[in-house]
């Protein structure tokens, strides 16, 4: 019985700590990256700068898939660089979701 409980906990812990496959610590790093580094072009409040605004309102009608593709490969002909070499697929998915629904993940 006891071993079963432990097994359940052992299974659960990673699920809780790694929601979306991104650990809480990593989420914090990604938020810092988003507001501070992406923010140098998109504005620290994501209201736009040299690059377009990335607020949920501004991104209405853009799919998560589109955002993930833009983050991964960049946008040719603009200064938006490809982040694929620096971020994992899970990181990129998390960022795309977060941009669409920042409230859900705060």
């Amino acid at each position: 019985m006891r071993s079963t409980i432990w097994a359940c906990i052992a299974l659960l812990v990673p699920v809780l700590a790694f929601a979306d496959g991104v650990s809480a610590g990593r989420q914090k790093e990604l938020k810092n990256l988003l507001y501070q580094d992406c923010g140098s072009c998109h504005g620290m409040k994501l209201t736009g700068g040299l690059g377009p605004a990335l607020t949920p309102q501004a991104l209405q009608g853009k799919s998560g898939e589109f955002l993930a593709t833009t983050i991964r490969y960049g946008r040719a002909g603009t200064p938006m660089p490809p982040w694929g070499p620096l971020l994992s697929d899970a990181d990129i998915r998390w960022l795309a979701d977060y941009l669409k629904n920042p409230g859900d993940k705060q």
Binding site: D37, S40, L50, P79, P81, W83
Partner: peptide, 11 residues
């Protein structure tokens, strides 16, 4: 020249 342009992560 003939070098590839690398990604620029900050202007």
């Amino acid at each position: 020249a003939h070098d590839e342009k690398l990604p620029v992560y900050k202007m």
